[in-house]
């Protein structure tokens, strides 16, 4: 689909018509033109925002504690895993383990939350898809944005633990920002991928919780990235979260500038998955209306 406004059309259409022009041509496996697609995305940005906000608003609408769950959830989660690791290790844990655990866990739940919500974003958008023409990429993208909005209050929780534990505070923490950008790109790419898969294979979303649980154990959350590398060596690089979560906790907890391996490895994985996921979804999205 493309929309353009050419002045020469103005003479041949009634004065009060909007200058929009839509051309629909077959492109089953092909991609729509990049420029107009991105313009459409940009044009719908307030829809993206509103959809994410309403997802967030309706999630805890009927609970007694309401939006307080946004902070309670991550705290309880951190407590559960801290207890688990403590029992498994007989009460011994390295310095700064709790901040590391929380930082990793919250970032991990940002990525996995984007995936689990993203999986059903297209299929549950049924009526919207059947009746309105808009770039479908917006649906999983709004799941990522929702997950990000949930991630923000957890950063506050983390900040408190960070200070209480006496972890270094300094300008190096600004380097967390590029890591968040990488995490966000990765989370969005993963959401695009599973959202499209779920249209074709409706058990994708049912498999996802198990996948997410296993992936958590395989990522440097319950242990430090060095421990992972010591055991697995270069095999660690297969897991994108080795770079993404590793770099993230390096900056926050260890207070070091993330190594080039972490930064570049993370960038390669996140940009790669974002591009692949977006291409996959966009090349398939015109078929969604008949698949729902």
């Amino acid at each position: 689909m493309s929309i353009s406004a050419t002045p020469s059309d103005a003479a041949t259409r009634p004065d009060d018509y909007s200058p929009e022009r839509h051309v629909y041509e077959p492109h089953r496996a092909g991609m729509p033109k990049f420029g107009p697609y991105v313009r459409q995305l940009w044009h719908r940005r307030s829809f993206l925002w509103e959809l994410s906000r309403s997802n967030l608003r309706t999630a805890n609408q009927n609970t007694a504690l309401g939006q307080l769950w946004l902070v309670l959830n991550p705290l309880l989660l951190g407590a559960v895993y801290f207890l688990l690791v403590n029992i498994l290790r007989g009460g011994e844990h390295p310095d700064n383990f709790f901040p590391h655990l929380l930082a990793g866990l919250f970032a991990y739940y940002f990525v996995s939350g984007s995936m689990t919500a993203g999986a059903r974003s297209v299929t549950s958008g049924g009526r919207l898809i059947l009746n309105t023409a808009f770039p479908r990429l917006l649906l999983p993208l709004s799941s990522t944005l929702t997950a990000f909005l949930r991630f923000l209050p957890t950063l506050v929780v983390y900040a408190v633990v960070h200070v209480v534990n006496g972890v270094d505070v300094g300008p190096h923490l600004l380097l967390a920002v590029p890591m968040i950008v990488e995490l966000a790109l990765f989370a969005a790419g993963a959401a695009f991928l599973v959202a499209t898969l779920h249209v074709y294979f409706r058990d994708t979303a049912a498999f996802l919780p198990y996948f997410v649980r296993i992936w958590l154990y395989l990522s440097p959350v319950l242990y430090f990235p060095e421990q992972m590398y010591d055991r697995l060596g270069a095999l660690s690089y297969v897991n994108p979260l080795y770079f993404l979560l590793g770099g993230w906790t390096e900056v926050l907890v260890e207070g070091t500038i993330p190594s080039a391996t972490m930064l570049l490895g993370g960038a390669a994985w996140s940009v790669g998955l974002f591009v692949i996921g977006a291409t996959f979804l966009v090349s398939r999205e015109r078929e969604f209306a008949v698949r729902l």
Partner: peptide, 20 residues
């Protein structure tokens, strides 16, 4: 749905001028 741009044409072409 095809005119609204929701279903892709398999063959042929649709041009719509104006807001739908």
């Amino acid at each position: 749905r095809a005119v609204a741009g929701i279903l892709p044409p398999s063959k042929g072409r649709i041009v719509v001028n104006g807001r739908v």
